[in-house]
Nucleic acid binder design. Structure first.
Length: 555
RNA sequence: GCGCCUGUAGCUCAGAGGAUAGAGCAACGGACUUCUAAUCCGUGGGUCGCAGGUUCGAAUCCUGCCAGGCGCGCCA
């Protein structure tokens, strides 16, 4: 159901009729809202239409409201009462029968209820995580992973054709550094006392990696290593680490359609091709022996080097080529999810995308950093120093579902405090379990019904008038609003709205469950309630599916 | 110094032009012969960082200031 959209159309028709009869005159219809008022005595839906029309129509808002309400032509039985209130709100009280229509709709659509055609099959790429394969994923990557995955699910449900991609930075001197780090750990393992390079990756995982390397029967480190040896070791380490990353993501419930290697950009000449593009448009120039991209032409603070005087291209050059490549795949929209520590990088990439002529089709979502706490005390995290909490530890300690839910309860902009102990020790009261419990509880009800040989409910419209409790109407309303909520979440790229909706729905369900028995002596009422509750369970499962959180049958 | 993000209840966070600002946790008081108590019901708790401005109306938009986080390489 799309109650807001339906009412919006009814309002527009009423206005057109009023215009035709000369009761009101204005040039263009201003933007107006149809929303659910916070307060129950303001009705089920309300609009500010009369107020925003006051100026263009040169008329008092309440007078306009009167004209609109007099011209309303809603379907039979939809509107119970219409009130003009306050400065000119029009409040609509919707008949319970209207909301009850949602049950057969959910029955017929099943887990497709909540999906939409918003995207009309447009292609969207979501690129996320894309952590360098120089160390294991940490908790911050987990946040990006949860967001990217949920967003991809959300957009898929909204009718977009979504590709999930992970960009692997496997070019440049970090591979060298990684190889060097492994090399020195290997020497250490052979009993030598080594001054570990300062710019090396100091985390313990490199020691483990060295141990595994030798255990696997690989040749010991050469006493006089060449650059090539470092690169070889670096590639080895990169492969092992990347395999670990893939495993972590898999266990976090995240999968990718594509792992894109930066190396391929060079092998396929994409970097040169992008230089060519920019050169033709006059956005490249040489200075001090280096090649520069004129990003200031697009509002960046300064121009940026794409090829150093040494002849080596920069990371930025790869990224330009990568994004040119992306847009050659006919994506209508490309979403990049980055850690907020890269925010300074946005203007230059947007500049490059604009220079390549695909302005407005790249959206970068910055996800703020995660501050890690334990018992309320900050835990220091530095990647190089190697003291950080890995995603693996979070999955093991807190659990995939709880961690994802926590990440998806915040908007990306918020600076998130993640307290490991709170996430863990409070776990019974963690909102994720609250929502999951609602689903499991309903599963239990159906098991009970089966045990009592009560037939599975059929959405017989004759039954629904039995659903008259305020709790029931309220739940029906929530279900009816779900598709529009999903659309809004997709349009704004905000999966967290779903998290809040689900918590709300679970709350109402728990309350309903506590006050009223679903299975009772009254066979017809039992059927009616089981229908309602079945619909609720379907929506819970759908929403949890978007978030990538399990919808358990038992707990 | 410049830029981005944030500032809402004791804590963690929603709300992003609408009417009397919400939730979870924590605190306090109640409810298990029941379809799962991982639940429910109730109470207390706020100068929406501060100051101006815009308007019928501002937590929400604009400006300035304060505080915290993160950035400002021919690094990735």
């Amino acid at each position: 159901m799309r109650p807001k959209e339906q009412l919006r159309q009814i309002l527009i028709q009423a206005l057109q009729q009023a215009q035709a009869s000369g009761e009101i005159a204005f040039e263009t219809l201003p933007a107006f809202e149809v929303e659910e008022p916070k307060q129950a005595d303001h009705g089920d839906l309300a609009t500010n239409l009369a107020m925003v029309l006051a100026k263009p129509a040169k008329m008092a808002p309440r007078k306009i409201a009167e004209i609109i309400t007099n011209n309303l032509a809603a379907p039979e039985g939809m509107l119970q009462k219409v009130e003009i209130a306050g400065p000119g709100f029009i409040n609509f009280f919707i008949a319970a029968a209207y909301w009850r229509q949602v049950i057969p709709e959910i029955y017929s659509l099943g887990l497709e209820y909540g999906n939409s055609e918003l995207g009309r099959g447009q292609k969207v790429q979501v690129e996320f995580v894309s952590a360098n394969p120089t160390g294991p994923l940490h908790i911050g990557h987990g946040r990006g992973a949860a967001l990217g995955d949920a967003l991809a699910n959300l957009l898929t449900a909204a009718g977009y054709e979504v590709v999930r991609e992970y960009y692997i930075n496997d070019v440049g001197n970090q591979i060298n550094t990684l190889g060097k780090s492994l090399y020195f750990r290997l020497r250490e393992l052979q009993g030598e006392k080594i001054d570990f390079p300062e710019d090396g990756y100091q985390g313990d995982y490199m020691k483990d990696l060295a141990r595994d390397y030798l255990a696997a029967g690989n040749p010991p480190p050469s006493p006089s290593p060449t650059e090539e040896d470092f690169v070889t070791l670096g590639r080895y380490a990169g492969d092992v680490i990347l395999a670990g990353i893939k495993k972590d993501l898999e266990d976090f419930g995240v999968s990718f359609d594509r792992w894109f290697s930066e190396t391929d950009l060079y092998d396929q000449g994409e970097v040169e091709k992008s230089f060519q593009h920019l050169k033709e448009k006059g956005f490249l120039y040489e200075q001090d022996g280096a090649l520069w991209f004129k990003s200031t032409a697009f509002g960046d603070d300064k121009d940026r080097v794409v090829r150093r005087s040494t002849g080596v291209t920069t990371y930025f050059a790869s990224d330009i080529a990568y994004h040119l490549y992306k847009f050659q795949q006919d994506y209508n929209l490309v979403v990049d999810i980055w850690g907020a520590d890269h925010h300074g990088y946005v203007p230059r990439l947007q500049a490059a995308v604009e220079a390549l002529g695909v302005e407005g089709r790249l959206q970068v979502i910055l996800v703020q950093l995660v501050s890690l706490l334990r018992h309320g005390e900050p835990v220091a995290m530095t990647t190089r120093g190697g003291t950080f909490v890995t995603l693996r530890e979070v999955i093991d300690e807190v659990g995939k579902d709880a961690a994802r839910f926590i990440f998806l309860t915040r908007r990306p902009d918020s600076h998130l405090d993640f307290d490991l102990e709170v996430a863990k020790t409070q776990s019974p009261e963690n909102p994720v379990y609250y929502v999951q419990y609602a689903h499991a509880r309903l599963a239990s009800v159906f098991r009970q019904a089966e045990a009592q040989e009560i037939p599975l409910p059929e959405p017989d419209p004759g039954l629904f008038p039995l659903l008259q409790l305020p709790e029931e109407t309220s739940l029906l309303k929530m279900l009816a609003h779900y598709p529009e909520l999903m659309e809004a979440a997709a349009r704004n790229l905000e999966p967290h709205r779903i998290t809040y909706f689900l918590t709300d729905l679970a709350s109402q369900l728990h309350s309903y469950y506590y006050k009223h028995r679903f299975i009772s002596e009254d066979a017809a009422l039992t059927q009616a309630r089981l229908c309602l509750v079945q619909a609720i369970q379907t929506v819970l499962a759908h929403g949890l599916g978007i978030l990538g959180v399990e919808a358990p049958e038992t707990m």
